[in-house]
Amino acid sequence: MSEVQFLNVHKDFSGMEVLKGINFTVKSGQVACLIGPSGSGKSTLLRCVNHLETTSSGTILVGGRMIGYEVHGDRLIEAHQKDINKRRSRIGMVFQSFNLFGHMTALENVMMGPVKLLKVPNAQAEAEARELLAKVGLADRTGHYPAQLSGGQQQRVAIARALSMKPDLMLFDEPTSALDPELVGEVLDVMKALARDGMTMIVVTHEMGFAREVADVVAFMDGGVIVEAGDPNEIISRPQHERTKAFLSKVL
C-alpha cells in the first residue's frame, strides 16, 4: 500500500516558512500533480516525502507509516538513518537535472541499486535492467554513458533506475523542466505508461496538458499552502481562487 498522507506539514528554512500546514492525500494508485509558481513550496513538499528535506512539524505517512520520524514519548524524533534508507529504497525519485551517475553506463546506473542494496545477483540484475531500459525505449543505449545521451534519454534512464528498486511510489520533481521542448514528449509518454500500470505518483510539473490528461488529482500551491486541490479538469479549467486563475493565465 502506498497511500501518501500529508498531515499539517510545516517547514521552515532558517525562519522562513516555506510550508505552512499542508493537508493532502494521494490514494494508492493515484497520480497527483503539484502545480504552482516557483518558490511556492511544491518541490520542498515533494522532497519531504522521502525525507530529503526535514519537516518542522506535522507528519507524512506513506502506506500508513510515518516517514523520517518516529514517536518518542509525546514528541517526534528523526528516525534512525538505517530506517530512513530502507523506506527510501521503496520510493523512486526522478529529478529535474536527471542526476544519473556520470561514471556509469546507462545499464550500470539501472543495475546499481538492485546489486548493491538488494543484493540481487549480477546476471539477474542485468537482465532486469535491460528489460527496464527496453521499457523506456532505450534498449539500444545500454552501454552509453550519461554524457553521450540526450536530456530526454537521460531522464528515461533515470526513470528506469528509479523503477529498478521496484518502488511502491514514484516522486517526480519537474522531470521535464530541463529538457528541450522536442524531448518533453518522450519522457511524458513513459510517465503516462507508468500511470496506466497503476503506479502511485506525485509529480511536480508545469506541464498542464499532462496534469489534465493523466492526473487523478491536482493541487495548486502558492506561498507554502495548497490553495485548491481536486479534479484536474475543475482546477485547470475552472479555478475558483484568484491566485490559481492568475497563475494559470500565465502558463496556459
Binding site: N85, M93, G102
Partner: peptide
C-alpha cells in the same frame, strides 16, 4: 545532485561516498 540521487535510492552516506562520490 549525485549524492542526492544516491540517498533517494536508499544508499547510506558511506555507500554514497564509496560508490558514487569518490569514483567521480
Amino acid at each position: 545532485g549525485q549524492s542526492e540521487a544516491s540517498h533517494a535510492m536508499g544508499f547510506s552516506r558511506m555507500e554514497t561516498l564509496r560508490h558514487v562520490v569518490i569514483p567521480q
